[in-house]
């Protein structure tokens, strides 16, 4: 028996009709005005399917969709599309992360056509870390496109049903497209402008770099609202609990574009425990929820997936809205 088109499996929503691009659960919740929770899942450094399943089980029911990283920090891991397929089979909605680091325009298009055929509806378009940071520092960095060009290419595929070359598509993917933004990178006055470029290129949702410096994030959101960008795209703030004072200091010093205020570090120095890290994170989430124009949070607890359930529960974000088709 031929397999059904995975995009036709959906049950219709009972809520008010909204204009959907891809028709994913994640998209529907955002467009219905729900405060959305997503989390990140880092695939294994190997072919062990059970690792993906175990991590995914820890997140199921606690978040609305799960980002699958694409060889984060340029370390080789199971591919994001393959891992996303495992999640689909488990009834969990994936957000496929796709970087421009390892694929030229031919491979990007080919892989994403396949992702759509498999039933993946959400794609987060990233430029990607430089291979220098990973486990194969001698790898040739591709960066044929950048994240903005990737967004534009996928938007064109959706709207004009054409490849980047102009070749007509036999079936166009209609992804719900997202981008990342780092409000803490420089030049600060250009960050909201660059976000606007991403939205123009096709981003409908934005997941930000981890927020520790809430004041600076608030300042950035002010600019975002001034430009009306929060009405053109759904903005999810990145959060992640710190495990220790050591981790906080390491991130401040070594992770590019990461700002960890000294107040957080000294708080962890006084009471150095994972529990304190979780408390700090909950405090940040509480503050973020007060910000006008913010549509949700994105929990980036890679290699600490078990903390997500606890965090979501303590933040009072349970139960999650019913999952369509999940």
């Amino acid at each position: 028996m031929p397999r059904k088109n995975p995009h036709s499996l959906e049950t219709p929503t009972l809520e008010a009709p909204v204009n959907l691009t891809a028709g994913s659960h994640f998209e529907r919740l955002l467009k219905q005005g729900k405060f959305v929770v997503t989390a990140e899942l880092g695939p294994p450094k190997g072919a062990e399917r059970a690792v993906v399943e175990k991590k995914a089980h820890l997140l199921k029911g606690y978040v609305d969709a799960v980002n699958i990283t694409d060889c984060q920090t340029s370390v080789v891991r199971m591919s994001s599309i393959a891992s996303a397929q495992i999640l689909l089979e488990m009834g969990i909605e994936p957000i496929v992360q796709m970087t421009c680091r390892d694929r030229n325009r031919i491979a990007l298009q080919a892989d994403l056509l396949g992702a759509w055929a498999l039933g993946m509806k959400n794609v987060l378009c990233l430029t990607g870390d430089h291979p220098k940071f990973g486990d194969h520092p001698g790898a040739k960095p591709v960066f044929d496109l950048d994240s903005i060009q990737l967004l534009q290419m996928l938007k064109t595929m959706r709207e004009e049903k054409k490849m980047l070359s102009g070749t007509p598509l036999e079936g166009a993917p209609s992804f719900f497209l997202g981008a990342a933004e780092n409000p803490f990178a420089d030049p600060f006055p250009f960050r909201a402008r660059r976000l606007a470029k991403k939205i123009t290129a096709g981003a409908e949702f934005i997941q930000t770099q981890i927020v520790y410096n809430v004041d600076k994030f608030v300042q950035w959101m002010e600019e975002v609202r001034q430009k009306g960008l929060h009405k053109k795209a759904f903005i999810l703030a990145g959060v992640a609990p710190l495990k220790s004072a050591g981790m906080a200091k390491y991130m401040k010093k070594n992770v590019p574009g990461m700002e960890v205020p000294d107040a957080i570090i000294s708080r962890l120095e006084k009471k150095n425990s994972k529990a304190e890290g979780i408390e700090i994170c909950l405090g940040i989430v509480e503050k973020l929820r007060q910000i006008e124009g913010l549509s949700g949070i994105h929990i980036m607890a890679v290699e600490w997936e078990e903390v997500v359930a606890q965090l979501v529960e303590k933040a009072g974000l349970l139960p999650r809205p019913a999952s369509v088709g999940g």
């Binding site: 430029t127 870390d129 960066f143 950048d146 903005i148 030049p187």
Partner: peptide, 15 residues
Amino acid sequence: AKSLMNGPCGGSQGG
């Protein structure tokens, strides 16, 4: 380092 056409990327800090 990434030959970006629409930079700067998120890794630009302090110039």
